[in-house]
Design a protein around this nucleic acid. Structure first.
Lengths: 205, 205
DNA sequence: TGTACATCAGTGAACGCGCGTTCACTGATGTAC
DNA sequence: TGTACATCAGTGAACGCGCGTTCACTGATGTAC
């Protein structure tokens, strides 16, 4: 119990965490400033000591999400170095692991409608995360003969889109979409086929 | 001007169309029953003559979306028969074309949080659309040697996820995500690489 | 063709609600002497 | 160590707003005779 400082101790972070919990439970729409304040045990007005308003609170949640996300995929990437292929695959797995483990952050980042340009801090955190993805793709592309090598940013866009699609359609219980496959298997097999298509995995497994 | 019938003529459909316009402009959150009614030139209470409430109106918009969607991809699929490969690729292109041409429907279907089980009609329309995707994938799978053939439903899930991811991340102006590639090119190149990975396109283009 | 009646799409007023935000304030905490 | 003061995190009441939904109604349309 870090109840030092002024009255609450660390209301700012407590609010972010309540917001994440609410976003996770009810989606970005279901989240309200008032309820976040109430569940943190504080008056709605207290929020304004720490955030400019509702949007600002969501943006901070998203920023923290991008930071965790970047750390995770960077770690996954580094751990498998110097193999470009293993690093790339680990990055994909880390993407899904993040979405599963930090659903509130994920929604705040991608479904809350918040713009990356809400604040310089958010933009920077997002840019760092995307930078890791692009680096992994660039490493990988270097192993493809230049004449049949797609741009690295295209490869990273493909994988990002595939990952995001798997999360949105099959990972969250979203609309009513069921698949007989676990999201992890779906993503892994999809990336496998894709890498084979790039000529980075031999045709015979 | 089909102003026959009672007072308005066809208020039910007019409300659906206003709702779609609002959803397209402001997202599923920005849409309100009251504003849809007002913009249709009618009292909010009038909506309840035709829909059980707000959710029911969105569900009808989604249902119409799935119907259009199914028609479009079915047509694209049929047109390229009997080539399984061409049919499959046309289906992917039709997916993106639908998302671009009917953004309101797309959002109502995939981002409104509406469940496919809201009504039997919605469930049926959605099932038909997904059926076309699965059929295209099954046709295609038949051309792969059985011992290295992934399940058709997995192939269709991959393509659906990739398509959805491209739409969400790169097609709508969403968070701040920019890509140097047009969504169409991104999807087409992604599917191309994927099909090559399945051994359905020769390695040398 | 004309009249009396039934139907029912849309009205208008009202409701209770929770929202985001503001404001002057209070009182616990930290600090200077 | 003790006291006087400054700071500022959080309070509590209030605001205006638009929401979704309800209700008894009205009056245009369709229909039976």
């Amino acid at each position: 119990m870090a109840k030092r400082g002024y009255h609450h101790g660390n209301l700012r972070q407590a609010l972010v965490e309540t917001a994440l919990k609410l976003i996770e439970e009810k989606g970005p729409t279901g989240f309200t400033l008032s309820e976040a304040a109430k569940q943190t045990g504080v008056t709605p007005a207290a929020v304004y000591r720490h955030f400019r308003g509702r949007e600002d609170l969501i943006a901070e949640a998203a920023r923290q999400g991008y930071t965790i996300f970047a750390d995770l995929i960077e770690y996954a990437y580094d751990k498998e170095q110097p193999s470009a292929l293993a690093s790339f695959e680990a990055t994909g797995r880390a993407y899904l692991a993040f979405a599963r483990k930090f659903p509130g952050h994920y929604v705040a980042m991608f479904e809350s409608g918040i713009s990356h340009n809400h604040s310089p801090e958010l933009a920077a955190a997002a840019a760092r995360a995307l930078g890791v993805l692009e680096r992994a793709a660039a490493d990988l592309s270097a192993h493809i003969p230049p004449d049949r090598r797609p741009p690295a940013s295209m490869v990273s866009a493909h994988i990002w889109a595939l990952s995001h699609g798997v999360v949105e359609l099959f990972s969250r219980g979203s609309p009513g979409t069921k698949s007989p496959f676990a999201p992890e298997d779906l993503l892994e097999s999809g990336i496998g086929i894709y890498l084979r298509g790039l000529g980075l995995i031999k045709p015979d497994e």
